[in-house]
Design a binder for these strands. Sequence first.
DNA 1: ATGCCGGGTGGAACCCGA
Length: 262
Amino acid sequence: MRIATWNVNSVNARLENVLAWFESAAPDVAVLQEIKCVDEKFPTEAFERLGYNVAVHGQKTYNGVAMLSKYPLEDVRRGLPFLHDGEVDEQSRYIEAVIAAPTPVRVAGIYLPNGNPLGTEKFDYKLAWMRRLQAHAQGLLALEEPLVIAGDYNVIPEVEDVANPEAWLGDALFQPESRGAFRALKNLGLVDAYMQADGAPHGYTFWDYQAGAWPRNLGIRIDHLLLSPQAADKLAGVTIHRDERDKEKPSDHVPVVAELAL
DNA sequence: ATGCCGGGTGGAACCCGA
């Protein structure tokens, strides 16, 4: 089973590229981030014509996530649970479903908050969101099932994951708190699919639109697929689709695809 | 480079991204 994650930076602005990629890469399951539209504006029919089932957790202008699957989607959850009752969240950043394949797999698609600038409520929101993810992931791992938590984590895990570390020292994506929360998530027993299958340094997934970041290869690795032990046992490979960054009107992120032997 | 590009909103200039 081929499972992909891609921050598309507006699904409707990018629709031609996105559909062409789906036709050639043919993922069985894909999670998309930053669709930047409400559910009614998501191009559901275009994906259905390619044979996908569609689940959307949209939002006007900002954020928004979706899941596409060639197998039926069951037990769809929209939004990450809260640590305390009565809390509300207007930001659409989490979607989860069970992929009803011969061997079922639970897949979560996340768009983790950016958190910049430091010293503001945005960074607090990022860290609080990571605490919620930690708690929810702990519960999912207790199910002892194949599980994939994929998406734009907005965290540079290690110094090998950034071309110019000094430039990111003051950035929320590279703070010790952000990296520590990501490490704590992995320490629950989740495996970074790219590190397990490949692990080559500088496996970037994002290049800024500005300052010639792409031609100069000034990238960062922030799009990740974390696997439960039951999924990691079946990991056959991970591919970063760098070529997408060279297309006309590209997203600033490229797809990352994990192949599972189930 | 706290804004160099790019998307969305709303109908110009501004918010946001990472």
